[in-house]
Computed example of a mutant assay.
Amino acid sequence: MDDGAQQTRSARRPGRVVGRVLGIPVYLNPSMLLLAVLVTVVYGGYAEAELGLVAPYAYAIGFGFVVCLLGSVLLHELGHALTARRYGIGVRGITLELLGGYTEMDRDAPSPRVDALVSLAGPAVSLVLGAAATAAAFALPDRTVVGEIAFQLAVSNVLIAIFNVLPGLPLDGGRALRAGLWALLKDRHRATEVAAWAGRGIAVLTGLAVLTLYWLQLLTVFGLLFIMLVAFTLWQGAGQSIRLARMSRRFPLVDLGALARPLFAVPSGTPLAEAQRRAGAADRAGDALAVADAGGRLVALVDVAGAAAVPAERRPWVAVDTVARDLGRVPALPLGLTGEQVVRAVQAHPGAQYVVTSGEDVVGVLHVADLAQLLEPRRAGRRPATG
């Protein structure tokens, strides 16, 4: 299953790089190993029972089917990636994981038409692969290894194509639905939210359908668990799309100049307790605590979490330098970035604090918690406040 097809700056860890295809990095998520083992065992058992193959050879055939299946998923994702490139959208990589794969792009499609074309390119590739495998299955002799593999590839690719065109995010069909709603409503964020709720509906219907099939004894326990995992993943992916749509609607509110906390500098070597006392006495306890050298030049930024982790009774004996990070190692955000650019920069370089610069000058510090409070006030309100 292709669980989302295209993403702009994924929050997921991509996994290990296993190679490049047409210059595009291909990552293998560790969860894919679980799928490889399951498919090898299940298909190997089938080959042993139905084709009369001895165990080692049967499971080798099962592993061969896994490789063919991975190739099909990779080609599906390349359909998205190459279509995106055709329309000037950069591709960061392709990740293969437990339930299929996804393609990470450096920005969203510029128009509904491009969004729809990129979204549907993957299912189109799967459909072509399914048709080719079907033709091969009919041409090859029955009950042979190559004939059975061709048949299984035909079924799996056709199912991938059909399932992925269902009209709900995070599926490809959901992105196509979003593109159509975007063209109709002239509001990409609203279109994304509607398509994501459709995805949640598909997740619920999938769960109900699989429970019914199991109750009718038309599905094994393994099939029940696997498809329920698919339904759960759909529900989570749709929820993430809803969350991102609501966040994106608030991007224009992001103003680095207003969000950045002023700096309160203390000399290098100052005890942490004394630095905090001075900030409080100056009514600047909410400012970002920085460290200055003997010449007054800022050299480090106190890490909020690191400072909070120091027990109160030890703070008079701990210098600010020990819980500070060299200023050159703190990610920088120049004033003037748009809200979308700020979020992309934070996603690209995750951290708790970012120095805000104007030319070569540091004018403040952005706490990621403040950005989260602005973009997701309801979620941030449920979390404990941080410095």
Results as ranks from 00 to 15, higher is better:
V66M: 06
A81Q: 06
T40L: 00
R85N: 10
P170M: 03
F63L: 14
G130H: 10
Y46C: 01
S119L: 11
V125R: 08
L171P: 04
L166R: 04
I162T: 06
G168Q: 09
A176H: 05
F151M: 15
F138Y: 13
A132L: 15
G52K: 06
I94Q: 01
I149Y: 07
V146E: 15
A132D: 11
Q152R: 12
I149L: 10
L75V: 10
V165C: 03
G52C: 08
E148T: 15
V146T: 15
A81F: 06
L177I: 07
V114R: 01
A133L: 05
V54E: 14
F138L: 15
G62F: 00
A131L: 14
I162K: 01
L53C: 08
Y57P: 09
L99V: 14
G71V: 00
Q152G: 03
V54K: 14
R85V: 11
F65K: 00
E97Q: 13
G100L: 07
P141K: 07
G45F: 09
L120F: 10
L74E: 09
G62D: 02
G101Y: 00
I160R: 05
L181Y: 07
G122M: 12
G90C: 10
T83K: 04
Y57W: 11
G79N: 11
V146G: 11
S72M: 03
L181A: 08
L166Q: 04
Q152P: 01
H76T: 13
L98T: 05
L120N: 05
G101P: 07
Y87E: 05
A176W: 05
Y57E: 14
A121M: 13
E148Q: 12
N164W: 02
